[in-house]
């Protein structure tokens, strides 16, 4: 029983990170209908930015305000990268066949992985990620955990609540929902569609950066390809929950995290496939994901 609780704890930890990344996929999909293949790479960029910022601050143990500051800077810069990517590579294709944007997304993804790889000061080799948070182990009812784990889950949940607040309670949030519903009508209502899409990309990429940093804090190795698999799994989580739906992304993230950890405990190769198998089955019974609404096509 304790083992299972222990595993679920790990699952929640991984799931909270998947959820953070899944949010970006789901927000972008919701607003422009694009599966942003480059989204996974944003988390890698975020992790690397924070890595270099921490180094620039002298490495070693950093004080809390400094840690908070470099993470926020990393999130903002990654957010801006998201905005730039959208402006250059996706926006010109908005009225074109949707698949062309998907191909540019693959192109952007290849670029974001291979450009740093080609840079001499980054390169292909994995790097140890500095410990930004203090690590204290303790025990709750026989289940071992540590401060980093609890902090990561808490921060992820705070960010998700923040996002939920932004989308449901603020003006920019209602603009996002309007653009998602009908771009043309939103434009007629005086909403700046381009800016709203930029804001969406900014938030999505910034959350991914946070997810990247949290992931690297728990599994402290980073490399330029880390976004591929993490991104893919987060993407599956987004679809599982019902892509386009923010609550669905969170739910999907936690389901994926727990399922993966439990399956890995049985067999390490099973862990990877498990998420996909769950996804296929859920889509067969709920073709639009758990929270997604299946719309009847009007004839």
């Amino acid at each position: 029983m304790t083992t299972i609780l222990q595993l679920i704890m790990y699952g929640l930890q991984l799931g909270s990170i998947y959820a953070l990344i899944a949010l970006g996929y789901t927000m972008v999909y919701g607003i422009i209908g694009l599966i942003n293949f480059a989204h996974g790479d944003f988390l890698m960029v975020g992790a690397f930015l924070v890595y270099f910022l921490a180094k620039a601050m002298g490495g070693g143990t950093l004080s809390y305000p400094v840690v908070a500051l470099i993470i926020i800077i990393g999130m903002i810069l990654t957010g801006l990268l998201g905005v730039t990517t959208e402006r250059i590579a996706y926006k010109p294709l908005r009225k074109k066949p949707r698949l062309s944007a998907l191909i540019t997304a693959i192109g952007v993804s290849m670029f974001l992985e291979n450009f740093p790889r080609a840079l001499p000061f980054v390169g292909p080799q994995p790097r140890p990620f500095p410990a930004l948070f203090p690590m204290n182990n303790f025990n709750i009812g026989g289940v071992g955990t540590n401060s980093v784990q609890i902090l990561m889950i808490t921060l992820s949940i705070i960010l998700m609540i923040g996002l939920h607040y932004i989308t449901t309670k603020t003006k920019v949030g209602s603009q996002m929902r309007a653009v998602q519903f009908d771009k043309d009508a939103a434009a007629l209502m005086g909403i700046n569609v381009n800016n709203t899409i930029s804001v969406t990309f900014f938030i999505g990429a910034a959350l991914a950066a946070a997810g990247g940093v949290f992931y690297a804090s728990i599994y402290p190795m980073i490399d330029v390809y880390m976004g591929i698999w993490l991104g893919t799994k987060a993407f599956v989580a987004a679809v599982l929950g019902g892509i386009g739906d923010i609550r669905g992304a969170m739910l999907g993230g936690f389901i994926m995290g727990v399922a993966e950890v439990l399956a890995t405990a049985v067999n390490s190769d099973l862990g990877y496939g498990a998420g996909f198998v769950i996804l296929i089955f859920i889509l067969l019974f709920k073709p639009a994901g758990i929270m997604g609404k299946f719309t009847i096509e009007k004839v």
Binding site: I88, A89, P92, L93, T104, G107, V108, M110, F111, N114
Partner: peptide, 18 residues
């Protein structure tokens, strides 16, 4: 691959239909 990816993005922007 950096160049490959840039060429790919530019191609799709110039000729979205391939």
């Amino acid at each position: 691959i950096v160049i490959y990816s840039l060429v790919l993005v530019m191609l799709m922007l110039k000729r979205p239909e391939g």
